[in-house]
Design a protein around this nucleic acid. Structure first.
Length: 823
DNA sequence: TCCATCCGGGG
DNA sequence: GTGTACGGATGGA
């Protein structure tokens, strides 16, 4: 019989010398299913100069003991494939189970054979070979079989193929979050119990499911609240809820390294079988989950797709965010405009022991955290889906990848189509060598400090990707034999790239670029919901395209090519520098440039002339390269490097016609600056860019006198610094450490990760002796001189210097030379 | 300034 | 799971 289903979770099992892939998913009627198919593991060996008859004999005799198993070769096929641009003969060698691949290939390497694709994960290999895309409709021919140890029907497939691009739209989501007993910020899974578990789910129809279970009773009642007797009951109840609710996707925030390992640890302690897998298997956690290295732990439940949304944010999506911290609170604030509940989680243990009547606040908090994780997941689900579909690997692997791995996975996906064999990962000594390599990056034009008007900013769209494709950059094309008389890389006389045969990498990259061009057109024509999905797709493709350049210089890359990376930046420098030159030839004054952008002054010319200049540049650009008009800014400020003559690179502020500030490189966003410095810096920048120089001077003087007279509210003076290690191990006691020690004396828990907030107060002695907690400080008790010299003045001095005022001018101490000079 | 170590997220 | 992170910040030499 024939069935169609949407697979989204994958594993394999070895049964009596045969290996089966298990594809968990849903039928079109929303019911769950597990489809299994036999699949044979293999790798490649290069046999170009090998005595084949002899090899055949040796392979058939080969048997290697591996625990109780015997690894052996089952068969082989001859094939021709391309390795780094050269066609070579290979044997595709099949072995009797997946883990025999590394064992057999290692032995063959010792025989002197070059082995390839011997470390491709088995499920990944399967998905690529079968061309199956997770979350989309797949057809299977075969029959249902009796498997009593399964929570869902099992279908044994004889044939599986992708049926259509239809995507699974109805998913049942569940987010979980636990709160645990912890007295001193130290997390000890083996010692401290789980106190409560929150669930926040949404089913296929959008119906919500909310629940918090806890094992301390109190009088407050809530619909979602359920009491159990003890931690054992809590764990059993958790198991039952998971089984009953039966989500397709489970999420959480750091559930990979915290919630699931914690639950597993506690369940093991009480010998409770946490057999949540659809095959009754227990929660799987990466082996190192309890020895202090949780940050890359993985937790899986077979058949239920567990996607820790923190992982996707930390590894991939976080690069779009402004936040420096990937804490649930910071991320939720930025992405969904929602904060965690404002309670002191460090008081939970005490409340649990001594004030159970107040536990309701913690239950609310618990549920809210689960809700936040669910909302984050829903916000990013399209992005995860699109990355998954484009790369064609399981989502739970995708979200755990960094950019280099994403790109490599994408390239590997294409390798099969182009009959390309993947080069091996570098060995240890090779990696060490690669680490040594450094090279020149983008070109940055040193600005002359000043306040400029009528700035036009142009930038090259996707500069590095378009250079790579336009100049056919890639390992196979580097210094080819066929065209060494051709164009050399600018400034690199010993590098050139083939102009006859396209390199595999640039072909792959070009396809991404073209797909994005298509998508942009589609997005314009599509409705709102479709648009969101297509934008996610476009974003995923953009991330991939932009990662190619970095990938070629990445030490772990299979298609590593440092010459390619060097050439890419060399071309980029050449393009931006020649753009600057041409702009100057056209009588535009260039004030700044950085890698792919160029800032010029309109001067006496009109916008049409600037556009004409851009069109002329574009006329001569190869491939998909394009210089774009980024914007017009009435005013722009470039400041000097502290204590130096020259202009600071990557530090400037622009204002748009509409009055929006574009600030780059200034301190306004950093944590260890007090709110007052940030605010003053922003205001001064705005006034200067709005051409209100005198107003800015008056403003700063007013703020200085306000500060001096003690009128700044203490909240605006808080400096925040994070405690990063155990307090005793600090050898130099900075103000934040001194305050942390005071907090400890007052029984306020402090440990690594605590952000200490303090104010520097008046008096004599060391700064650290005058650093105090907010509540200790009376209004106006702060040390005005400290704030002036270490916060306010440093935040604005470089800006005023451009206007001709030095620090004395601001402080009203010196003569006001600036006025005469500039107005 | 360089090199080695520490840290993230979670309670 | 055909396996063992990684890149930035920090602090000591």
């Amino acid at each position: 019989m024939e069935i169609k289903f949407f697979p989204y979770d994958f594993e394999y099992k070895v049964k009596e010398d045969e290996t089966f892939i298990y594809l968990y998913g849903k039928l079109e009627n929303n019911s769950k299913i597990c489809v299994i198919e036999k699949y044979r593991p293999y790798f490649y060996a290069q046999v170009s100069n090998i005595h084949r008859k002899q090899l055949n004999k040796r392979l058939s005799d080969l048997q290697i003991e591996d625990n109780k198993k015997i690894a052996k070769v089952t068969s082989y096929e001859e094939c021709e494939k391309e390795l780094l641009g050269k066609k070579k003969d290979f044997w595709k060698i099949y072995v009797n189970y997946p883990k025999a691949v590394p064992i057999i290939s290692k032995e063959l390497s010792q025989w002197g054979l070059e082995c390839y694709e011997k470390d491709i994960l088995y499920t990944h290999r399967y998905l690529r070979d079968r061309e199956i895309t997770p979350f989309t409709l797949v057809q299977a021919k075969g029959d249902f079989i009796d498997e009593n140890r399964f929570r869902v029907p099992v279908f044994l497939a004889e044939e599986i193929k992708q049926f259509s691009k239809d995507r699974l739209k109805n998913v049942k989501l569940l987010s979980i979050d636990i709160e645990t007993y912890s007295k001193n910020k130290i997390i000890q899974m083996d010692k401290n119990p789980i106190l409560m578990i929150a669930f926040y789910g949404r089913d296929e129809k959008g119906k919500e499911f909310k629940k918090v279970i806890t094992w301390k009773k109190f009088s407050e009642k809530k619909d979602y609240l359920e009491f159990v007797n003890d931690e054992i009951d809590l764990l059993n109840r958790f198991r039952q809820i998971m089984i009953d609710y039966n989500p397709d996707i489970l999420t959480g925030y750091f559930s990979d390294g915290f919630d699931l390992p914690y639950i597993k640890t506690r369940a093991e302690k009480y010998k409770i079988k946490m057999d949540l897998g659809l095959d009754y298997s227990e929660i799987y956690t990466g082996s190192k989950y309890n020895n202090n290295n949780l940050s890359n732990a993985t937790s899986k439940i077979k058949g239920i797709l567990h996607l820790d949304i923190f992982k996707f944010i930390r590894n991939i999506f976080g690069k779009n965010l402004k936040t420096e911290s990937y804490s649930l609170n910071a991320v939720s604030n930025e992405l969904i405009g929602n904060s965690k509940h404002d309670i002191k989680i460090e008081k939970l243990a005490d409340t649990w022991d001594n004030h159970p009547e107040k536990l309701i606040d913690f239950c609310e908090y618990n549920l809210h955290d689960a809700h936040l994780a669910l909302q984050l997941f829903e916000k990013l689900f399209f992005d995860i889906i699109e990355f998954t579909k484009i790369i064609g690997l399981p989502s739970d692997d995708i979200i755990r990848m960094r950019f280099s791995k994403l790109v490599e996975s994408y390239i590997l996906q294409r390798a099969k189509e182009y009959n390309v064999i993947a080069p091996n990962k570098p060995a240890k000594n090779e990696i060490e060598q690669r680490f040594e390599e450094t090279y020149e990056g983008g070109f940055v034009y040193e600005p002359t400090p000043g306040l400029y008007e009528d700035l036009i900013v142009f930038d090259f769209r996707s500069l590095y990707p378009t250079i790579i494709t336009a100049h056919n950059i890639g390992p196979e094309a580097l210094n080819c034999d066929c065209c060494d008389d051709k164009e050399k890389v600018p400034g690199k006389d010993n590098y050139w790239f083939c102009t006859r045969k396209k390199s595999f990498l640039s072909k792959v990259l070009e396809r991404i670029i073209l797909r994005r061009v298509d998508l942009k057109r589609l997005i314009k024509e599509s409705n709102e919901e479709e648009k969101l999905l297509l934008e996610s797709r476009s974003y995923a493709l953009k991330v991939l395209a932009n990662s190619f350049y970095g990938y070629m210089a990445f030490f772990g890359a299979r298609w590593y090519c440092i010459e390619c990376a060097k050439s890419t930046t060399a071309y980029a420098r050449d393009y931006i520098q020649s753009t600057i030159k041409k702009a100057e030839e056209k009588q535009f004054q260039v004030v700044y440039a950085d890698t792919d952008s160029c800032f010029l002054l309109l001067g006496d010319q009109i916008m049409d002339q600037a556009m004409e200049f851009m069109n002329e540049i574009n006329f001569n650009l190869p491939g998909h390269m394009e210089l774009e008009f980024e914007g017009y800014y009435p005013k722009g400020l470039f400041v000097a490097l502290k204590g130096k003559e020259g202009g600071a690179k990557k530090k400037y502020a622009l204002i748009t016609k509409e009055g929006t500030l574009k600030i780059t490189g200034f301190e306004t966003v950093r944590r260890n600056w007090s709110p007052i410095s940030k605010e003053v810096q922003q205001n001064v920048l705005r006034m200067v860019l709005e051409d209100k120089k005198e107003e800015a001077l008056e403003y700063i003087k007013e703020m200085i006198s306000k500060l001096k007279s003690g009128k700044i509210s203490k909240e605006d003076l808080i400096i925040k610094t994070q405690i990063t290690k155990d307090l005793r191990s600090y050898s130099s006691i900075g103000p934040h450490v001194a305050v942390a020690l005071k907090m400890l004396e007052k029984d306020i828990p402090v440990g690594p990760g605590t952000i200490v907030e303090y104010i520097i107060t008046k008096g004599s002695g060391l700064i650290r002796e005058r650093a105090k907690m907010l509540e200790e400080v009376k209004q106006g008790e702060y040390d005005a001189d400290y704030y002036l010299n270490n916060q306010l003045i440093p935040a604005v001095s470089s800006i005023f210097l451009v206007l001709g005022y030095n620090e004395e001018d601001l402080l009203g101490e010196g003569k006001q030379e600036g006025l005469g000079k500039f107005f």
